[in-house]
Nucleic acid binder design. Structure first.
Lengths: 315, 315
DNA sequence: CGAAATATGCTCAGAGTGAGCATTTACCCG
DNA sequence: CGGGTAAATGCTCACTCTGAGCATATTTCG
């Protein structure tokens, strides 16, 4: 069974990385220019084909990223392998070859640009995902168009299904906003034809990217937003020492929601995720804050050390 | 950048499926015979190469599974793409080709054998994962060998790291057993050389499989064990109607731990995951139980409808 | 010095969890 | 036919976790 002879038209395998970082108030992604794309889609993730010289997929990815951006990767995690119909090559002799792309999530500490790579805010590509200032205004236009899409279904059954799905992913009625459903929201917008990648003429649903890179980025955001709750991955994005206020700001930037300050520090403290250092800093504006550092030992103590975010709200 | 010319030695891409089901007390996986493997490794997962005729990866997978086992798949979810060094082809002209394998998790309801495929218990491959009857006896031998491996490190630092890792994945001291860490445990055993796939001479750590299929299965079990907690996927494995007792038995079989009966039914009930039917059944031994059915509407109501298992213990 | 901005401490009510006791309703057996 | 056994169900209770607020402590800015 299985291991048959290699087919004549072997698939193309690409590697791509969503490299994420966070300055105090803005979550970032590292992008590179991509030539030969439609207007408005000239930005993409660092990517390149898997080559025989690459010892492993991950090592191949690191090589491509270093070559294209100069960035050395620390934490790396495989996200998903995209390979569906709309990734098949259209042109010259490639008609029958699959084009897969193995996407990775990488977290890095510092945000120094390199080569012609640039750091961009996530929310450039997903403006509706940022709810730190309350319900973002762009959501109104978006919801209106989504409702239009739902109503436009010929079958009333289908119309109801679409409405249900909109409510579910964007958080209507009973269920509230779930910040992890980044991919589901993007795919809904895609299906509704509201993103440039799917033919939309404007950017209400955010700026586009080359190929299906925005889908990969959505996958990465969703994964990260989920993962900070049960793994101490935020600290991959923090400097060696930081204040609890800074940590909270970063978590809020990543998750896109505001948190209750006192409860946040209670949570972090009682879970043993951080420990105090001697130093304090007065750079934060008001009363000086104590500098903290991540307690690596927590990895040996607790089964799921993370920051379970509550449903959110300011303080 | 990125989309360079296809390299001369394009990678081989395979598709593989961990197809899981559950009879009342035993969780199952569908296996097929694999020729040309070392002794004791003649069982594998349904798998086959991605072909140009396959419209998508998932459709290709479904096609291979139906051809090899006759089983039609319902719920399917991509797990991971394996492609590291030890998956590279060794032989005849393939030296420089990568061999990737995209692994999927599939859940099916009924367990009817087909062709030469056979259903096997998970715990045939991971005997130490079944803690329903308490700490499995085979763990003693395993832990002894693991301790030996930890002590055998030349560097004392490395030795301590290995001990920490053993404690962490197999649940020593403070942190208890975490049933989701199936993959981490398998990989630890692999690195310690205790599985036949890594050269071990016996089966203390469970029966081997072809290629790296046992690693895929471990990934699948871990994912499923985690997912039942926040998605109602168990019901993919249940018949249309069932008693709460049966549901609990299945969840226990999947997770490998026993649950407190009264709390389990309280949980299921108050989360609105199921609803009563008119019927009762007397087949369970004692007082007849009411037959329940899955409430699909819950998908529209709750953000994360699942069965958060507690730390477990009998009732 | 007063206002503004943060950092920190502490309280409290309500929901959620882990365990166990008690009852009900079948079947099986002598 | 009565007792024993096996589940299924109902209910309680102590304890922890969580969401929200009130109050105080330090600094910088004007």
């Amino acid at each position: 069974m299985s291991e048959a002879e290699p087919s004549a038209a072997a698939p193309l395998v690409g590697l791509a990385a969503a490299i994420l970082a966070a300055t105090l108030d803005e979550p970032r992604v590292l992008t590179v220019p991509v030539a030969g794309q439609p207007a408005g889609r000239g930005e993409g993730l660092p990517a390149g084909p898997l080559e025989p010289a690459h010892p492993t997929l991950e090592r191949g990815l690191r090589a491509w990223v270093e070559r294209q951006t100069g960035q050395t990767l620390g934490y790396v995690e495989q996200l998903y392998t995209f390979g569906d119909r709309n990734r098949r090559k259209g042109g010259k002799g490639d008609e029958d070859r699959h084009a897969l792309s193995v996407a990775y999530l990488a977290l890095v500490r510092e945000a120094r640009p390199a080569a012609d790579a640039t750091w961009q805010s996530w929310y450039r590509y997903f403006p509706y995902e940022d709810r730190r200032a309350g319900r973002p205004p762009c959501l109104d236009a978006l919801m209106a168009r989504l409702d239009g899409w739902a109503g436009a279904a010929t079958d009333p059954e289908e119309s109801r299904r679409r409405s249900d799905r909109i409510g579910l992913t964007f958080g209507a009625a009973g269920s509230g906003w779930n910040e992890e459903r980044v991919l589901e929201r993007y795919e809904l917008l895609f299906e509704a034809g509201l993103v440039p990648e799917a033919g939309a003429a404007d950017d209400v649903a955010g700026h586009a990217m080359a190929f299906d890179h925005r889908r990969m980025l959505a996958t990465a955001l969703g994964r990260l937003r989920g993962k900070i709750k049960y793994r101490p991955v935020v600290f991959e994005l923090m400097p060696p020492t930081f204040t609890l206020g800074q940590l909270q700001r970063v978590v809020e930037a990543l998750s896109g929601v505001l948190l209750h300050k006192q409860n946040f520090r209670r949570l972090v403290a009682q879970q043993g995720l951080v420990e105090e250092t001697e130093a304090v800093t007065a750079e934060t504006g008001g009363r000086p804050a104590r500098l903290m550092r991540f307690r690596r030992e927590v990895l040996l103590e607790r089964p799921a050390p993370g920051l379970r975010l509550p449903s959110g709200r300011a303080g």
